[in-house]
């Protein structure tokens, strides 16, 4: 499905944010990427849909080499890749419905998009997603009138209406309180599993990562230092990723909870 090979990114400033990162995902699983801030998690995610141009290496999605695409083909490829952001990045002055439907922009003509005249199936799908993320009746509310948790749920709906082959999620809960964070993660992971969409989630909260992911990748200083099951995330591994600290509570829960929460549910 997704094959990242020797991906390297050096910013113009000289920062080597990614060094030879290779990841293969060949089943629809939820992969959490953890690591201290500055490790290169956001850069990795943005290099996949090329919001950031990688310096070298390749990204292959369902047999297509994304790094080699011209701008027109890249746009076509992007419509199959959903993205969810830490700051939600909803268009503040548009309604919830317009924000969700904007996920279909890659599929409809300019004129239809301009007139907000989307195909019946798209509109129905938008209403269905609105219900799934628990925002029934909010379609005409402007995005800037929503709370953080509500905004992120709209963000999830916008990404999922793309019918994505891959979901890229950058710190979805970093701006939310703990309870809302769990709710948002649960909705996100449930929907991703239902649609069998492979999902990459950057997250700095080790607890959340272990609760919701099937696989965890640890990054540090632009390199992958861990790749394995949540249960394998021991004190030693966490020290490798984040450095010296008392990790006993985080590691202890890992052994007690082998299967991720929603994997069992679905």
């Amino acid at each position: 499905m997704l094959a990242i090979r020797e991906l390297t990114k050096t910013y113009d400033t000289g920062t080597a944010a990614l060094r030879n990162v290779s990841i293969t995902i060949d089943e629809p699983q939820v992969v959490a990427i953890i690591g201290p801030s500055g490790a290169g998690k956001s850069t990795l995610i943005r290099c996949i849909n090329r919001l950031v141009e990688p310096t070298s290496g390749s990204v292959e999605l369902n047999g297509e080499n994304l790094t080699a695409l011209g701008s027109r083909d890249l746009r076509r490829a992007r419509r199959h890749i959903g993205m969810i952001f830490q700051e939600y990045n909803l268009v503040e002055r548009l309604t919830v419905m317009e924000n969700i439907l904007s996920g279909r922009l890659g599929y409809v003509s300019f004129w239809r998009a301009f007139r907000r005249n989307y195909p019946a199936a798209d509109v129905a799908a938008a209403f269905s997603l609105l219900e799934r993320v628990g925002l029934e009746g909010y379609e005409n509310t402007r995005a800037d009138a929503l709370s953080g948790g509500q905004r992120q749920r709209v963000g999830i709906a916008r990404a999922l209406i793309q019918s994505p082959d891959l979901l890229l999620v950058d710190e979805p809960t970093a701006s939310l309180d703990p309870k809302t964070s769990r709710q948002v993660m649960r909705i996100l992971v449930e929907l991703a599993r239902e649609q069998k969409t492979p999902t990459l989630i950057n997250i700095h909260d080790v607890q959340l990562a272990k609760t919701f992911a099937n696989r965890i990748i640890g990054m540090q200083d632009g390199e992958i230092v861990f790749d394995g099951k949540p249960g394998q995330l021991t004190e030693k591994v966490l020290t490798d990723i984040y450095g010296e600290e008392d990790w006993s509570t985080e590691a202890a829960q890992a052994s007690g909870e082998d299967a991720p929460e929603t994997a069992a549910a679905s």
């Binding site: 309604t95 419905m97 989307y118 509109v123 129905a124 209403f127 209406i161």
Partner: peptide, 18 residues
């Protein structure tokens, strides 16, 4: 989405901003 047919039956198919 996965089953467009059933979606169409259950949800509105037009949405107007105004």
């Amino acid at each position: 989405m996965s089953a467009p047919g059933t979606l169409k039956a259950r949800y509105p198919q037009v949405w107007r901003k105004y």
